[in-house]
Nucleic acid binder design. Structure first.
Length: 919
RNA sequence: GGGCAGUUAGCUCAGCGGUAGAGCGGCUCGUUUACACCGAGUUGGUCGGGGGUUCGAUUCCCUCACUGCCCA
């Protein structure tokens, strides 16, 4: 084994090991190896957008998955972590279209036409599509890359089409003219989930309409959308509103378009209980074509829906000469001006309201009446039950309530998109009106339910195979919502609809790790698809991460420029450092405030680990020699007990998905316990000149390090692998159990009763070691109080109350950096004013001949006396309370009595010293 | 309007019925043969306000306030 360099240089080492793992097939899943003794463990990656780049959100998400996968391997499971990417319909199409526009190649995608445009998107995908995958590899993700999938792979597309056709034939998919969320920029319909509500300050326009039957009488209407007045087909009031009852059934004169004769501008005044008394004036303009609630009112009252806009959000001819051609927001201003001109404007007042925005294009969506494909969700009951019963568990649990609430209020899913990039809808419309003729015209045998008459009277065929004679048919031009393909991810990636060995072995998957922001988009829909097509839940557990924010708590966003590039962080600090830093600050169920300091801490920790290993290496000696129980020192026993505790704590934390707790424990154990105390104490053994003790200490160190590296490996895969080999721990191990790679070594088990018995580890060993550490801390405190620099070697005297071995004294001496440590008997008495401190092992003195600052020591003792007296006041107050003594459990009272007597003894001792000082 | 989180040291958070903790930061000392990406010491808190339950509340209950998120 070559000597480890002084500092850990992650870059070269990370690349080396990642390549090695790939070459050794360490990440490959073998379904045929699954057996009762080798259970399956599987995760499907939440597929990132194919054109995406790695963000800190991905880092959090994928590090967690990697930790789970790596630990599962070490626990002896057959692991499949299945990777892939999502074609991300709107997102990708928008990016490519924008780029083409920027380069001046096109003004709109229509300039290229569907086929040419799609060619460009595929080109783009080939060029940029692999980036995020490469970045995940840099992070150390142990995915089975041979199984990488893309939601537009031919086999995957076939799954999507098949599911569509199946749901069509079951009647769960229908086409209808409905109010949908329309994005005027992308010019497509969106699902409700793709609309985000934003609070906005706008204006509430109050304007008057004249009652046709009572000239000179006006009603005042308050609206946020005056530009839609030309589309109004009624005025509505609440039937129970006494202010307006007399007008119900009369007509109002709609002011716009003003060029129309009054007769063509009359709209009925109707009564509808959905009109709010309190909003505005209580009089509502009803625009069925441009508002969801108005559409419903229109349905109830048989009103016409007059669409006054083009798909791009500009006003059309029906809006009237004044508004036609204007953008909807420009038209809003013009409409107000027209109302003013007509003398109908009452007032405009500032108004806060919520407006739905297109998630992708970030513009207000336009409620629009259009013909789209909708899905009535399948398998809803099983999907609800599986979570309700706890058979599928959510972490944190509270998300199950959010899920339940959404499932309870399911709205049909608008699945068609007026885009080109995506899965083309497998529906053809018959150029004719005779259903029977249509069935024959398909040209090949299809079941009767594959051909259906739609709401609008047209006849549609749905199937995987196109009709034979395309002249009689026209294919639907739309594509499917991206999520209509992602919801099949857990099984479509494993070879469905064939019942493959992979599916048999790995479905349902074990864990899903994702953000709560896509619980509806993705998680809930996958559950329904899983039940519908696999007859079984897609996963056992769903872990919801927090959202990554900056240190001020703001969401990461490009426009704020507050999202650091993970690749920069990896280059600067190393992948392990990034992983550890993020995991240490990502508690279950809470958002993560990202601060580069955390990554720095991760880097520092890696360096610490590295140097601790170097220290061990510099001591030479063969790795992992046998530990001899008869040679164990107090410190050896202590660190073995602490290791045992760490193994238990880390394992439990990981079992419960408490990753930050696991990281904290590892940090504390390795840095505070192993490095700060054990290694320093062990220097006494290493320098003792006793070869046996020295060898045994090294054996203990190796034992601890070999365990620690395994515990750390899921968090810090690269550095632990390097050290595993660098320290020679792989030697003498079977190939598949750590001989080749640490990632195949078994996960540490708690040491167990036999181990404790064999090495004579007793609970009191911990207390004994701790007592010596208390002596050391007391001594360091004395040094500090008397301004003795930590490098000044001074003598200490310990008046021990119990026998102490030479070795233990030497350990204390070294940790105190003392010139000498005298173990004095009762007869010894310090000279007047000698600083002292009471420790669990007796009085510790710091004799400072000629240097004693009596005043300083008196002051110090005075402070301590005050502190003890305060504690005594507190504990005595409790003990003197009759209600406490009689009401509290006996053990608690006893504990308080003990506390009182301890403090009392201590006070007496310190007073005695103080008096001696006063002399 | 409904729901869910959160409010503990300067910052980030743990504790969740019986002596207020960690990391970071600050301050002081230190180049003691693994590590200055370090070591030692030290400074920081009437645990958001108000009620209640209890012998005892940061911890349980109610209520209010504020912050953030989700759904209308």
């Amino acid at each position: 084994m070559s000597e480890l360099p002084k500092t850990y240089e992650p870059q070269a080492i990370e690349e080396k090991w990642y390549a090695q793992w790939l070459a050794d097939g360490c990440f490959d899943a073998h379904p045929e190896r699954v057996s009762p003794s080798r259970p399956a463990y599987s995760i499907v990656i939440p597929p990132p957008n194919v054109t995406g780049v790695l963000t800190l959100g991905h880092v959090l998400n994928n590090t967690i998955q990697d930790i789970l996968a790596r630990r599962a391997r070490m626990l002896g499971k057959e692991v499949l972590w299945l990777p892939g990417t999502d074609h991300a319909g709107i997102a990708t199409q928008t990016v490519v279209e924008r780029t083409l526009k920027k380069s001046g190649a096109i003004r709109h995608r229509d300039d290229l036409g569907r086929e040419k445009f799609l060619e460009k998107v595929w080109e783009w995908k080939e060029k940029h599509g692999g980036i995020i995958i490469q970045q995940l590899k840099k992070l150390g993700a142990s995915c089975d890359w041979k199984r990488e999938r893309f939601t537009m792979d031919p086999e995957y597309s076939a799954c999507v089409q098949q599911v569509f056709a199946d749901l069509f034939r079951k009647g769960a998919i229908y086409r209808g003219k409905r109010m949908v969320n329309w994005c005027p920029v992308s010019r497509t319909a969106l699902s409700d989930e793709e609309v985000v509500m934003k609070s906005q300050s706008g204006a509430l326009t109050h304007f008057r309409v004249e009652i046709a039957e009572r000239p000179g009488t006006f009603l005042t209407i308050a609206t946020t959308r005056p530009e839609t007045i030309p589309g109004d087909t009624a005025i509505a009031v609440n039937p129970n509103d006494p202010r307006y009852q007399e007008y119900i059934g009369l007509h109002a004169v709609r002011p716009l378009p003003r060029e129309l004769p009054q007769a063509e501008r009359l709209v009925p005044i109707i009564a509808d209980t959905h009109v709010e008394f309190g909003f505005g004036t209580g009089v509502l303009k009803v625009t069925p074509a441009h508002d969801k609630a108005d559409f419903e009112i229109g349905q109830r009252h048989g009103l016409a829906a007059v669409d006054i806009m083009h798909p791009d959000g500009t006003m059309n001819a029906l809006a009237g000469a004044d508004l036609a051609g204007l953008d909807r927001f420009e038209a809003r201003k013009v409409a107000v001006a027209l109302l003013t001109e007509l003398g109908l404007l009452d007032k405009e007042e500032p108004h806060q309201n919520n407006v739905g925005y297109s998630e992708r294009a970030d513009v207000p969506v336009e409620p629009r009446l259009s013909s789209q494909w909708f899905l009535r969700y399948p398998a809803t009951e099983a999907s609800r039950e599986v979570v309700r019963s706890g058979k599928m568990r959510f972490f944190p649990e509270r998300w199950s309530k959010v899920y339940e609430h959404w499932m309870e209020n399911l709205q049909d899913w608008c699945i068609s998109r007026q885009l080109w990039w995506g899965h083309r809808i497998p529906v053809w419309y018959f150029r004719g009106t005779d259903a029977e003729a249509a069935h024959k015209a398909v040209g090949h045998a299809v079941p009767p339910e594959a051909v259906r008459q739609l709401e609008d009277g047209s006849i549609a065929y749905c199937g995987l195979e196109a009709p034979a004679d395309l002249a009689q048919w026209e294919q639907d031009g739309d594509v499917l919502d991206t999520w209509f393909s992602s919801w099949l991810w857990p099984f479509a990636t494993m070879g469905w609809p064939e019942n493959t060995q992979t599916l048999k072995a790995f479905y349902p998957t074990t864990d899903l790790v994702t953000g709560p922001d896509i619980i509806f988009f993705w998680v809930a829909r996958m559950i329904m698809a899983g039940f519908e097509y696999m007859g079984e839940r897609p996963f056992d557990n769903v872990y919801f991460t927090g959202i990554i924010r900056d240190k001020q708590g703001r969401k990461m966003s490009k426009s704020l420029g507050n999202s650091p590039d993970p690749l920069d962080l990896i280059a600067k600090f190393g992948a392990d450092a990034l992983r550890f830093g993020v995991m240490r600050s990502a508690p279950l169920g809470q958002d993560v405030l990202f601060d580069e300091k955390n990554v720095e801490l991760g880097r520092n920790f890696c360096t610490k680990l590295w140097n601790a290993a170097r220290f061990r290496q510099m001591q030479a000696g063969s790795p992992e020699a046998e530990i001899r129980s008869e040679l164990l020192t107090t410190d050896d026993k202590w660190i073995l007990l602490r290791l045992d505790t760490a193994i238990l704590e880390v394992s439990t934390a990981l079992d419960e998905y408490r990753f930050s707790d696991a990281a904290q424990t590892l940090y504390r154990f390795f840095w505070s316990e192993y490095c700060d105390w054990y290694v320093e104490a062990a220097k006494a053994s290493l320098n003792s000149g006793n070869e046996g003790i020295r060898e045994n200490t090294l054996a203990v160190m190796d034992f601890v390090l070999a365990h620690a590296l395994r515990l750390f490996h899921p968090f810090l895969p690269f550095i632990t692998e390097e050290l595993w080999h660098g320290l020679g721990f792989h030697q003498d191990l079977p190939e598949e159990q750590g001989g080749r790679s640490l990632m195949q070594a078994p996960w540490p088990k708690p040491l167990g009763a036999d181990f404790h018995a064999h090495y004579g580890l007793l609970p009191e060993d911990e207390a004994r070691a701790q007592a010596r550490f208390d002596v050391v801390q007391a001594g360091r405190g004395l040094r500090r109080d008397f301004n003795l620099p930590s490098n000044k070697r001074v003598p200490f005297v310990l008046q021990a109350t119990a026998p102490l071995s030479e070795h233990d004294l030497e350990v204390i001496r070294i940790l105190l950096n003392a010139e000498s440590l005298q173990n004095a008997d009762d007869a010894w008495s310090p000279s007047r004013g000698t600083p002292s401190s009471l420790t669990p092992l007796g009085n510790l003195y710091l004799p400072l001949d000629g240097l004693v600052d009596v005043a300083a020591e008196r002051e110090r003792l005075g402070k301590e006396i005050t502190k003890i007296e305060q504690e005594l006041v507190k504990v005595r107050a409790k003990l003197s309370s009759e209600t406490f003594v009689s009401g509290a459990p006996a053990n608690v009272v006893a504990e308080h009595r003990q506390r009182e007597s301890d403090w009392n003894a201590r006070l007496g001792e310190i007073r005695r010293i103080a008096e001696a000082l006063a002399g």
